[in-house]
Measured scan of single mutants.
Amino acid sequence: HAATELTPEQAAALKPYDRIVITGRFNAIGDAVSAVSRRADEEGAASFYVVDTSEFGNSGNWRVVADVYKA
């Protein structure tokens, strides 16, 4: 099962156990969220919340930071 994305309210009520950072070329924010979901799932997380997204220069590469939560 894939890790689910939390709302800001849900994330605020929970304590993350880790923070992950992924970088890559994403065509849309949805693609980045899917990549975070896969990584969170690999780490055994039940859910995640994207904290920050930023573009690296003009290369089209993105850096996505997310907190991950157990259950």
Rank of each mutant, 00 (worst) to 15 (best):
G24N: 01
Y17F: 13
R63T: 12
A66T: 01
Q10Y: 04
D41M: 15
T7S: 10
H1F: 11
D18M: 15
A3N: 03
Y17T: 03
D31Y: 05
A2I: 11
V65A: 03
S47L: 08
S47V: 04
Q10V: 08
Y17E: 01
N61Y: 15
E9S: 10
S37D: 03
L6R: 02
V64T: 01
A3P: 13
T4N: 09
I22F: 03
D52K: 09
Q10L: 07
A66V: 13
I20F: 05
A66L: 06
V64I: 14
A28N: 15
A35T: 05
Y49H: 07
R63M: 12
V64W: 01
W62F: 11
F26S: 00
R39T: 05
V50Y: 02
A28H: 14
R25I: 12
G44V: 04
V64D: 02
G60C: 07
V36W: 00
W62G: 00
A28Y: 09
A66R: 00
V68D: 02
P16D: 00
V50T: 01
D41V: 14
S59M: 10
V36F: 01
A66G: 01
A3K: 03
A71R: 09
I20R: 00
A71S: 11
P16A: 07
E55K: 11
R38C: 08
V51G: 00
F56I: 15
A13C: 14
V64K: 03
F56D: 14
A40P: 04
A35S: 05
L14I: 06
R25M: 12
A66M: 08
G30A: 14
D41H: 15
K70T: 08
A32I: 12
R25N: 08
D67G: 02
A3G: 03
V68T: 02
D41Q: 15
A46T: 13
L6C: 05
T53L: 15
R25G: 03
V50A: 00
S34K: 14
Y49V: 08
D31F: 09
I29M: 12
A45G: 05
V21S: 05
V51N: 02
A13Q: 13
A12R: 11
R19H: 02
G57F: 07
T23I: 15
S34A: 15
A12W: 07
A11M: 04
H1P: 11
F48V: 05
L14C: 10
E9Q: 10
E55I: 12
A71W: 14
G24C: 07
R63K: 10
G44E: 05
K15T: 13
S54H: 14
A46H: 14
W62H: 03
E42K: 09
F48Q: 00
R25E: 09
E5A: 10
N61C: 15
V21E: 06
A28R: 11
D41R: 15
D18K: 15
E42G: 05
A12G: 07
D41A: 15
S34R: 14
R63G: 03
T7C: 07
R38E: 09
A2M: 13
V65E: 06
V65H: 01
A35D: 04
A46E: 12
T53R: 09
A46S: 12
D18A: 15
E55V: 12
P16R: 04
S34V: 13
A11D: 03
Y49R: 05
F26K: 02
T53K: 09
T53Q: 08
K15G: 03
D52P: 00
E55F: 14
R19G: 00
D67I: 10
A32H: 00
S34F: 10
H1W: 10
V21D: 04
E5C: 11
V51T: 06
D52Y: 14
R63S: 07
P8G: 11
V36Y: 02
A11N: 02
Y17G: 01
S37A: 15
S54G: 08
P8Q: 13
N58I: 12
A2T: 13
Q10P: 02
R19A: 02
D18R: 13
V51A: 02
E42W: 08
E55H: 10
A12D: 06
F48R: 00
V68G: 00
H1A: 10
N58M: 11
F56W: 11
T7F: 08
S54Q: 15
A3T: 06
E42L: 12
T4Y: 14
N27L: 11
S59G: 11
V36G: 00
A12V: 08
A32D: 02
S37L: 09
I22S: 00
T53M: 15
N58L: 11
D67T: 05
E5L: 10
I20N: 00
I22W: 02
R38A: 12
G60M: 04
A13P: 06
F26M: 00
A35V: 06
Y69A: 01
N61F: 15
Y49Q: 01
F56Y: 13
Y17A: 01
A2R: 14
A11Y: 05
A46M: 10
N61D: 12
S37V: 09
V33R: 06
G60L: 05
R19S: 05
N27R: 09
D67M: 11
A13I: 13
A13Y: 11
A46D: 14
L6M: 06
